[in-house]
């Protein structure tokens, strides 16, 4: 878990020394205070805004072999409608015959409307420095931003969505691999840490709400704006599982479980995270 080093830098020597003296409950508070302050410091200028701006331009421009803009892409509220779209995803899309999260839907529009091959559309799902920025991260940040202030309202009325929710919850507790880990190993109890990294309890509404409504997020340690697909992918890496396929049904099932668990909370992304 490499981000421990950056974390240490930010929290600072004094906080760590104090935390050690006073034990883990205090360490938790100190760490949270430090990161809260850090977020506050950056509040006026979240670097994720650069991704949002890039995504906004891409949204409007004619793209792909067919020179079609995303304004014909239906995220569930009608073609081109982005306001509030992120807060109601994942949902069932009859045209695709699948439950989709935002990122999967963007890829679908790139392939089915703009004429990209699937391979081209998913060539750079996650950015890797300034020479390899990800269009999908920018587009996701832009669309998500248009739900800032909107209440999460993922509907489970559709049986396909309900099934994905159930599968996601089941998968959350599925232990396997060399380390016997499940998502639940790290995210099913309150007030735990790995090293100094705070672990949200995602099985409780409060934990799921706080976590889900702040993704996508600018990751200070990486200098990139990351999406929820990235978050799942990297947690599975730490879980010692293989490579989660972008837009796979498992990624959508877990996203459905956690997004619906966040229902009722106000979406407030893109966030900033250490």
């Amino acid at each position: 878990m490499p981000s421990i080093h950056s974390l240490r830098l930010i929290v600072g020597v004094a906080a760590i020394a104090a935390a050690t003296l006073a034990g883990s409950a205090f360490a938790q508070t100190t760490l949270e205070n430090a990161s809260a302050k850090y977020r506050q410091d950056l509040a006026d200028g979240n670097p994720a805004d650069l991704w949002v701006a890039r995504g906004q331009e891409m949204w409007k421009e004619p793209r792909g072999p067919r020179k079609v803009s995303f304004e014909s892409c239906d995220l569930g509220l009608g073609p081109g409608v982005v306001k509030g779209a992120y807060a109601q995803l994942p949902r069932w899309f009859a045209d695709a015959g699948r439950v989709m999260d935002l990122e999967t839907r963007l890829v679908w529009c790139m392939v089915n409307q703009q004429g990209y091959t699937h391979a081209d559309a998913t060539k750079q799902t996650f950015g890797n420095g300034s020479r390899h920025r990800s269009d999908l991260e920018a587009l996701t940040a832009y669309v998500a931003k248009q739900s800032d202030g909107v209440k999460m309202n993922v509907s489970l009325a559709d049986p396909h969505v309900r099934e994905m929710y159930d599968v996601g919850k089941k998968a959350f507790f599925y232990r396997a691999g060399t380390h016997d880990f499940a998502c639940a190993t790290c995210h099913a109890a309150d007030d735990l840490r790995i090293r100094l990294q705070y672990l949200p309890n995602l099985t409780e509404p409060a934990g799921a709400q706080k976590a889900y409504t702040t993704w996508p997020a600018y990751r200070v340690a990486q200098g990139e704006t990351r999406t929820f697909q990235w978050r799942l992918h990297d947690c599975f890496r730490q879980q010692r599982f293989p490579d989660l396929i972008y837009g796979s049904d498992l990624s959508i099932a877990l996203t459905t479980y956690l997004a619906a668990s966040a229902n009722g909370a106000v979406y407030a992304g893109p966030g900033i995270k250490l």
Binding site: E163, V167, A171, Y174, P242, D243, L244, S248, L250
Partner: peptide, 13 residues
């Protein structure tokens, strides 16, 4: 169903 979905959702790496 969950296991079937899991098996189709990863690639070896």
């Amino acid at each position: 169903r969950t296991i079937a979905i899991m098996k189709a959702s990863f690639r070896p790496k």
